[in-house]
Amino acid sequence: MYDKTVDKPLLLNNEKKKTFKLGHDFRTQFELGIMLWPSILHIFIFVIIPLFGYIIAFKDYDPVSGVAGIFSSAWNGWNNFMIMFNSYDFIPMLRNTIGMNLLASFVSIPVTLFFALFLNEITSSKFKSFVQTATYLPHFISWVIYGGLFVTLLRSDGAVNYILKQLHLVNKPIPFLSDPSFFWGIATVTSLLKDLGWGAILYLAAIAGVDMALYESATIDGAGRFKKMFYITIPCIKPTLMIMIIFAVSGILNNNFTQIYVFQNSLNLPTSQVIDTYVYQFGLQQLQFNVATAIQLMKSVFALILLWGANSLSKKMTQSGLF
């Protein structure tokens, strides 16, 4: 091993640079391996091995049979998927999942973008950073606490109904949490409020990267504040915007379980049951392991297709994508 350090200058002097490449010796590779392999092994155990568990979606699996049962249980083809499709819960669940995600994306992407654009127009940098710091706050609070806060505020004897009553706007308290017609709205507004400040960071970073000369020449040409926003800033940050849209499209089947579970109760279930909560309820609480896995397998496959599709469409249209 010691020889290597002696060899190096010799090799370099003999103009044999190409035969010796720095770091290609066994010892270096071995050390790098020590750094890499614990993580690789961990990924194999906790990410790759569970992928094999997806096969119980095609099996007649009995939870009692344990891990061995995954392989020994009988195949039953597409049966679990048929049970899922024929379930009365399936269509409402799919509608809630996609509907809530579409609503959230349609609201949060433009609102966050405009928040960033308007925040960028604030001239006082102290006030700007104060606004940023204050609006990050909810992002660091757990959904249990943030959602719980809104549960408290929206209860029939909560602050919102109290204020509405004091203002004589309502006679009876509005059942925000038990009436299914409010659920999508509550989910959208709370997730918007929670991540508005945080989501704006990405846009602000992109806006900061726009060439100042463009604004200067636009000002000389007589463009106003809004013209500059629409014809310079937005086109310049299109790659960032596209990435956000790709994420939104590929995550359309992926609800925020941590959020929805906090607001969910048996009365608002018709509009609050989504794939993720259904998998938990059906799988872990009712022990229908194979059907729950079938739902999740279908969801994962569609999510991968959507991610790939959104990415290639974005590449074609704007020459920018995620990968």
Binding site: F46, V47, I56, V67, L284, T293, L307
Partner: peptide, 17 residues
């Protein structure tokens, strides 16, 4: 692979067991 293949709830549950 670890980033794009999402872990499923039930297989993870079985693995932890």
């Amino acid at each position: 692979a670890s980033m794009y293949f999402p872990g499923a709830l039930i297989p993870t549950f079985l693995l932890y067991n």
